[in-house]
Simulated scan of single mutants.
Amino acid sequence: MVVSAKFVDNTHPISEMYVFGDSLSDAGMVFRATGGTYPPQPAYYQGRYSNGRVWVEYLSDRLHLTPKQTNNFAYGGAITGNVGNAYVPSLLAQVQSFTQTHQNTNPNSLYVLWAGANDYLQGVTNANIPVQNVTQAIASLSKVGAKKILVGNIPDLGQLPATRTNANSANLSTLTQEHNQGLRRSLKLLSQQNSNLEIVTFNANALYRDAIANPATFGFTNVSNPCLSGSNACGNPNQFLFWDAIHPTTAAHRIISDIAFSAIQEAGIVTPGVISQQSTHFSTMDY
């Protein structure tokens, strides 16, 4: 990953975090919206789409933020565009609800965006559309003063337990590649157009790829099957990459937080005062 040198001299700690996205970042929004019925307990942990906490919660810990300093707008099932429903606002709708009530933002806040997978899983075949939506979401945040942006690319959607053996697997893999390449180009252009923006990307795609190719490196013994089958869970979830047929285990979420933290650390967005010891297993940052 190439990081602009302008990040290196940043001496301000992150004071707040705002999260926008889908089920990979949802820490209970859909659960509360459905009166605690979905995702169902005890198969899922306290409204998370996993067996424990999700990556942004681990990242919050790494940044020494309190729960009051972490504001999570992510909804499971969210797509990037404006189409949504009463329970699940899209990425753009989440950002819009934030910008309407925050006309001036703290420049030392971190804004996290990770979305796009649901668009393709729900049938979108043009990668330009989700990429444009993510880019528009970042531009909207920048207009109210957001400066520090953390963006995730998407893992290979053709290699999920739910998709890898079906007829659409290869097409989903192609769309994933197109999305990630388009996202990289769009974020680079956005940074060039707005010198105040500090955009850092964490490479979820490479992490999943490396975990599937070298599971033992990450402490996994099973990277192809879900731990959860129906309502029955395996006895060793920490050794599984996937909790269900789509979502990672909390063990995988912890590793995702490691690479995200490493990315913002390399960018100079976090200072030595907030850097804790880390045990990341991940170094490859190519797309």
Rank of each mutant, 00 (worst) to 15 (best):
N166C: 04
N214E: 11
T201N: 10
C234H: 08
E198Q: 14
G182Q: 03
F242S: 09
N153M: 04
W243K: 08
K188W: 01
Q177P: 00
N214I: 06
R254W: 06
F220R: 12
T217W: 09
Q159G: 03
F202C: 06
A213D: 11
S231R: 09
A233I: 12
R185E: 09
Q239G: 14
P226G: 07
A252D: 09
I212N: 04
A170P: 08
N238M: 07
A233W: 07
A252I: 11
S231P: 01
N222K: 12
N203Q: 13
T250P: 12
I212M: 15
A251Q: 09
S195F: 01
C234F: 13
T221Q: 11
G152K: 01
R209L: 14
P215L: 13
V200Q: 08
T249D: 10
T201G: 04
N166H: 06
L183F: 03
L183S: 03
S224Q: 15
H247G: 01
Q239F: 07
L157F: 01
G182N: 03
S173E: 04
L190W: 02
N180K: 05
L241C: 07
N171G: 15
P161K: 03
R184Q: 13
H247W: 08
S231V: 10
N222P: 08
Q239A: 15
R184D: 11
A167M: 09
P237W: 02
A211Y: 05
N168I: 05
F240M: 09
P155S: 13
A245Y: 08
N238P: 08
G158C: 02
A213C: 05
T174P: 04
V151P: 00
P215V: 13
T163F: 06
E178L: 13
N205M: 09
R164L: 10
N225T: 11
I199D: 04
L187Q: 01
D210H: 11
A206P: 05
N222C: 10
Q193S: 11
F220Q: 09
L207H: 08
C234Y: 12
T221K: 12
T176I: 00
L228G: 08
Y208F: 15
T174Y: 14
N214V: 11
T176L: 06
L160F: 06
L189D: 12
Y208K: 05
P248S: 14
R164G: 02
Q239S: 15
L228H: 07
R185F: 03
T176H: 06
Q177S: 14
H179E: 03
N232E: 11
R185A: 13
P215Y: 04
T217V: 14
I212D: 02
L172T: 01
K188C: 02
G152Y: 00
F240C: 09
N180C: 06
C234A: 11
T176N: 10
D210K: 08
N168K: 14
F240Q: 06
L207W: 15
N232P: 02
Y208N: 01
D156G: 01
I154G: 03
A170S: 15
L187I: 00
D156L: 02
